[in-house]
Design a protein around this nucleic acid. Structure first.
Length: 468
RNA sequence: GUCCCCAUCGUCUAGAGGCCUAGGACACCCGCCUUUCACGCAGGUAACACGGGUUCGAAUCCCGUUGGGGACGCCA
């Protein structure tokens, strides 16, 4: 049997980081088992679904590199089919009309809550004759769920899980306006799409029991289920906006590489021995449900950053340049030209070992973009305000002006011989030099920066700082 | 409140009854390298929630307690 899995997000604004991880797991599961990975947009909630949100979901999937097979299924388009199944269940005696009004049900729940009873539909229309229906009332269709026994699921992650059927109530399948509920639509779509394995968050566990009852009522094959532990915030509480970013796109904006996010998400709730850095090919080769964790994991930004730093170091320089180019132009307030881009590219090897995000990479790369040295670094200004340093720089200037070989190696040699003659440490001149040339105290190796910067620019900046 | 699920360093995790004096990674601390900052390399601190069983032997199996998460909609 070919494995067919799906990710079924609802378009309610953006792609949640947890949804992204579930999508990744499903994708890898499909690839590992040489099956198909499908995308279904669950847009049956017409109030909240928007075309923008659908686009956000699709963009998120593409950014993460999770390409799906076949066409995207839009759940709402299938509502006639869902209604058809609801009527079929009605005909088979597995469902019934319920005329209770929302207000009536709310009152029922409040009474249950007040008495400390479990909150669930009490089945008031289960055995009642539809002839008793109030005139003009629009009914919903409810599942006639089994009231004895237990519903048992052999979970791919948790093992056997079960619940007594007395705990489950008769859920709504078709709303009074004729539209299907999530519970019905998911089952019908998964069945029609030939889904064999459902890997989803543990927040769906109770839904699974109820959905299994629908499969059984229809006499359909029940797919295998696997309930993935949820992602919590750094404080162990439910991941929410107050923890920072929950939208996948936010990670993109914060300068994370998709491969880093992929690797991080993969290791959150899943492991393959002690492996940490895992390539896409290895992920496909290794991923299976036996490596999934049972308990929830906390989101750790520090580890994500560390992984991101790793992948930035691995990344192709030209790719990095293209990724930070919009950032550079934005920071500079002008379009960064070809010359500056070439300087950044030449300095990239040193820049990328110092950045954990693309934002930091862009910040550091600005030394090659700006016309003048930075002026807002107080430590650098203090260094240049020192008369001794000024005198030192001034006395070194003629050497620099006479410098033939404008390479990092030669520049370093020149500075070394100068400091040796003066009997001072290399850093005694290198650091003021860094401050004068860049306006900063922390940069890539200063001789390399000088090499990539034009000679005239370097000399001009030193002169400017000396005479300031 | 009711039901479901879970429980190893601060965090992510390895661990399938003896290989565990509990391993790795991130973070943290320290050293080396060094023109700053990083990278890299070498060390270090740090965990089996608790209580009962089962067993010659338990981080691993069972029960309970505690703690955590989730679900209880004509949302998905």
């Amino acid at each position: 049997m070919t494995v067919r899995v799906r990710i079924a997000p609802s378009p309610t604004g953006y792609m949640h980081i947890g949804t992204a991880r579930t999508a990744l797991f499903n994708y890898l599961y499909a690839k590992h088992h040489k099956g198909q990975f499908l995308l279904r947009i669950e847009d049956t909630d017409r109030e909240r679904s928007t075309p923008e949100a659908v686009t956000a979901l699709i963009d998120g999937m593409k950014w993460l590199g999770l390409n799906w097979d076949e066409d995207v299924t839009f759940q709402f388009e299938r509502s006639p089919r869902h209604a058809e199944i609801a009527r079929e269940m009605l005909a088979k005696g597995h469902a019934y009309y319920c005329y209770a009004t929302p207000a009536e049900l709310e009152q029922m729940r409040e009474e249950q809550k007040a008495k400390g009873l479990p909150q669930k539909y009490d089945g008031r229309w289960r055995d009642r004759d539809p002839k008793d229906a109030p005139a003009g009332a629009k009914p919903v269709i409810r599942l006639k769920a089994p009231q004895v026994g237990a519903t048992v699921v052999r979970d791919l992650v948790l093992g056997e899980i079960s619940v007594n059927n007395t705990e489950l109530d008769d859920m709504v399948l078709l709303r009074s306006d004729g539209t299907p509920t999530y519970m019905l639509a998911v089952v019908v779509d998964d069945h029609d799409m030939g889904i064999t394995h459902v890997l989803r968050g543990q927040d769906h566990m109770t839904n699974t029991f109820r959905q299994v009852q629908i499969y059984k009522a229809m006499g359909w094959d029940v797919p295998k289920f696997g309930h993935i532990p949820l992602i919590n915030g750094e404080d162990g509480k439910k991941l929410s906006k107050r923890h920072g970013a929950v939208g996948l796109h936010e990670y993109q904006f914060m300068g994370y590489l998709p491969e880093a996010v992929r690797n991080y998400l993969l290791r959150l709730g899943w492991a393959h021995g002690d492996d940490e850095i895992i390539s896409d090919a290895q992920a496909i080769e290794w991923f299976d449900t036996d490596g999934l964790q049972k308990s929830p994991a906390r989101f750790d930004t520090k580890k994500l950053r560390s992984l991101n730093a790793h992948y930035i170091r691995q990344a192709d320089n030209a790719r990095l340049l293209s990724l930070i180019l919009p950032l550079l132009s934005e920071k500079a307030s002008f379009t960064v030209g070809e010359m500056a881009q070439q300087k950044v590219l030449r300095g990239m090897n040193s820049l990328k070992t110092r950045a954990e995000t693309l934002i930091e990479l862009a910040d550091a790369a600005m030394v090659y973009v700006m016309e003048h040295a930075a002026t807002n670094d107080s430590k650098a200004r203090a260094l240049l305000a020192d008369e001794g340093n000024k005198a030192l720089l001034e006395s070194f200037l003629p050497r620099l002006a006479a410098q033939n070989d404008w390479t990092a190696t030669a520049l370093e040699a020149s500075v070394r011989s100068f400091t040796e003659e003066k009997g001072i440490k290399l850093g005694a001149l290198a650091q003021p030099l860094r401050a004068a040339v860049t306006g900063l105290t922390v940069t890539p190796p200063i001789f390399e920066v000088m090499e990539h910067l034009d000679r005239e620019v370097v000399i001009h900046r030193i002169k400017a700082s000396v005479s300031a």
